[in-house]
């Protein structure tokens, strides 16, 4: 294949994926899209913690990064069940799967993941610095936590896509997806939290866990969509 036709194929694929990305973003913003559900859940959890833990400012500051990460992880899982289910209910999923021969289904899934992340998880990352203030965290800690969330949360979406694809045919698959996916997200949580602590607690390193977190995201960006595509391909009925 000559370089030119290859370039043309890439341009075509990126055009198609951009259309899918924009459609999903639009859907998440429109009424019933559920983009705000995750943020409101995130806000509710973090706002409740100081009341439960008590007014010990030093304790709040110490557990702050971990609480932000756990709340963000759970908020990420909240909207995952709709990732493919909404498309299945109106028949779009059949057509997306049929497109497999033109553009790899894994690429379609990756695009849907990115749109889901940008639509419902990115707002969490944006809200995290504000909620860090609730936890009496210092600016360096807030910055580090927001940065690790930015880098780490896509990994949760990618793993979640595989879970969502497996449970797509189940009417109330939300809980099942959370149970399926949660164990797999633990490494992301561990490295995300340890990098956040590394930025503030002195002997702990920041860069090493942060790089492992980035590597996890890149690795799962390939594995998650491929696994999800496989599940969707064999899950049509």
């Amino acid at each position: 294949m000559s370089g030119r036709t290859e370039g043309g194929a890439w341009a075509k694929a990126s055009h198609i994926m951009l259309a899918l990305f924009l459609r999903d973003i639009r859907l998440s913003i429109r009424a019933g899209g559920g983009a705000l559900t995750g943020v409101i859940f995130f806000l509710a959890v973090i706002a409740t913690i100081p009341f439960g833990v008590g007014p010990d400012l030093r304790l709040l500051a110490r557990i702050g990064p971990a609480i932000l990460w756990i709340a963000a992880l759970l908020a990420c899982l909240l909207g995952l069940d709709r990732l493919f289910q909404a498309d299945r209910e109106d028949g779009s999923l059949d057509l997306l799967v049929l497109g497999n021969d033109r553009q790899m289904l894994a690429l379609t899934v990756l695009t849907k993941c990115l749109a889901h992340w940008a639509g419902s998880v990115l707002p969490l990352v944006v809200a995290a610095p504000l909620l860090g203030l609730f936890m009496n965290m210092e600016p360096a800690g807030i910055g580090a936590t927001a940065l690790t969330l930015l880098v780490g949360t896509p990994a949760i979406t990618f793993i979640g896509a595989a879970g969502a694809a497996v449970a797509v045919a189940l009417p109330r698959g939300g809980l099942l997806i959370s149970v399926l996916v949660l164990p797999l997200t633990i490494p992301v949580l561990i490295f995300g939290v340890s990098a956040s602590y590394g930025a503030v607690a002195d002997p702990d390193p920041f860069l090493q866990p942060f790089l492992i977190l980035a590597a996890l995201t890149l690795f799962l960006a390939v594995l998650g969509p491929v696994a999800a595509a496989l599940a969707l391909r064999h899950g049509t009925d």
Binding site: A19, R30, G32, D90, L95, L96, L98
Partner: peptide, 27 residues
């Protein structure tokens, strides 16, 4: 193939034109 099933494969939250533009770009 164009597969026209029982379901219309259109999003209720998007306008008719947005739906069609998406499927045109996708297919």
């Amino acid at each position: 193939c164009h597969y026209l099933g029982h379901l219309n494969a259109m999003k209720t939250a998007l306008s008719v034109k947005e739906n069609l533009c998406f499927w045109r770009d996708f297919s």
